[in-house]
Simulated assay, not measured.
Amino acid sequence: MEMFQTAQGGDSLPLAGHPLFHSADLDEARDAVAQVYCDHHLDVMGKHGFAARHNRLPGSALSINVMTYSAKTMIAPGALERFYLFQLPIRGHASISNGDARYVIGGGSSGVLNPDADTCMIWSEDCVQVMLQIEKRALMETARAELGLPSGTPLRFSGANDMRGAEGRSFLGLLHYVMAEAERGGVVLGGDTLLGKQLERTLMVGLLQTQAHGLPAACGERGPMPRSVRRAEGFMRENLRSPIMIEDIARAAGTSTRALQSAFRDRHGRSPMAFLREMRLERAWEELSNPSRHTSVTEVATDLGFFHLGRFAEQYRKKFGCTPVETLRAALD
């Protein structure tokens, strides 16, 4: 976003005075990133030559990072385990898969990776991201103190978040201030200073205020999954491109339509057909994020049973925070 770019000028990255590494070697870049994050797969998808640059400002419970890959790149770390990762592209876009969540960030939107979910990302060519790496323990403690998160309850973030509103701009303004002070030599993170600790705590509170999260629904994902629901989900997954109805799903699950409706509302808080629509939207995201040169939004949508393209685009935007065309364009860049 503008506040991070205009302060630096040219092609230099924010936090230029705090370089971690700069390499055109894929293996060297992977090893350097793994040392501060976690082990991961790193693969070049585009035709552009590979180069990676990473600047890093470490603190006590979090670090501020600026990173770019010159080529379109796939990063697959699996589960992060020890930390949450806030990501804000200030140039380019990234397609994110984090557990069941699928979304695209960029153009003013951000997202947070949950540490307990398998993760795979595709960064567009020359994507530049500002990232906050926050210790899981520290953010959970802040959520308990500030939001009343019950002890033992997981904190999970979901989807893309528009950072162009008042709260988003305030949070990013504080983040930019800390980075700008570091560039002027006034490093305020890390150490045992009261100011450093308070700034880290304020950044974590700002993240909690601007990123979508919530406690799991009381009926959501507790207890073993009923056999009928498990069979129904398997049948749906195998027939995403088929014109199936609720009666077909109930028959495959070995139950009545009324019992299946009740089981899905108890388990997922929605009807089987609404759940099927979500599965089809996620499949659309996967196909648009990993296209061939022949892929089109219309073909993907109609192949998955979305024949009203305007309604499909709106449902897609509501779920992923961007339009299908934006996902495809970012994947093809």
Score class of each variant (00 low, 15 high):
10 G>S: 11
11 D>Q: 14
12 S>P: 11
13 L>D: 04
16 A>M: 07
18 H>F: 05
18 H>T: 13
23 S>I: 01
31 D>W: 07
33 V>Y: 08
36 V>L: 11
37 Y>E: 12
38 C>R: 14
43 D>N: 09
44 V>I: 08
44 V>R: 10
44 V>F: 08
46 G>W: 01
51 A>K: 10
54 H>A: 05
56 R>W: 10
58 P>W: 02
59 G>V: 12
60 S>L: 04
63 S>M: 12
63 S>K: 06
68 T>V: 09
69 Y>C: 03
70 S>F: 05
80 L>H: 14
82 R>A: 05
85 L>N: 14
85 L>Q: 15
87 Q>M: 15
88 L>F: 14
89 P>Y: 01
90 I>Q: 04
95 S>D: 11
95 S>G: 15
96 I>N: 07
98 N>V: 11
101 A>R: 09
101 A>L: 08
102 R>E: 06
104 V>G: 10
107 G>M: 06
109 S>P: 13
109 S>L: 08
113 L>C: 13
114 N>Q: 13
115 P>N: 13
120 C>A: 11
122 I>N: 05
125 E>L: 05
126 D>W: 01
127 C>L: 03
132 L>Y: 12
133 Q>N: 12
138 A>F: 04
138 A>K: 12
141 E>W: 00
144 R>F: 00
147 L>S: 02
149 L>T: 02
151 S>I: 00
159 G>Y: 04
160 A>L: 03
164 R>Q: 13
164 R>S: 12
164 R>F: 00
165 G>I: 12
175 L>I: 07
175 L>F: 05
179 M>C: 14
181 E>W: 01
182 A>W: 00
186 G>V: 11
189 L>T: 03
191 G>N: 06
192 D>T: 12
195 L>F: 01
197 K>S: 03
200 E>M: 10
201 R>Y: 00
204 M>F: 06
208 L>F: 10
209 Q>R: 15
213 H>C: 03
215 L>Q: 03
219 C>G: 11
220 G>N: 05
220 G>V: 06
224 P>F: 01
231 R>I: 00
232 A>S: 05
235 F>H: 04
239 N>H: 15
245 M>K: 13
246 I>C: 01
248 D>N: 14
252 A>M: 03
254 G>A: 01
258 R>M: 11
259 A>V: 15
259 A>S: 15
260 L>N: 07
260 L>I: 08
262 S>L: 09
271 S>Y: 03
271 S>H: 09
271 S>V: 00
272 P>N: 07
272 P>V: 00
274 A>R: 06
275 F>A: 11
275 F>Q: 09
276 L>G: 02
277 R>T: 04
279 M>H: 07
280 R>K: 14
281 L>R: 10
281 L>W: 09
283 R>N: 03
284 A>T: 08
285 W>E: 05
286 E>S: 12
286 E>D: 10
288 L>N: 08
290 N>V: 08
290 N>E: 12
291 P>A: 11
291 P>W: 09
292 S>N: 08
293 R>L: 14
294 H>I: 13
294 H>R: 15
295 T>Q: 10
296 S>M: 11
298 T>N: 11
299 E>G: 09
303 D>W: 04
303 D>M: 10
305 G>H: 08
308 H>E: 12
312 F>T: 13
313 A>M: 06
317 R>D: 09
317 R>F: 01
318 K>T: 14
321 G>V: 11
324 P>Y: 04
332 L>F: 00
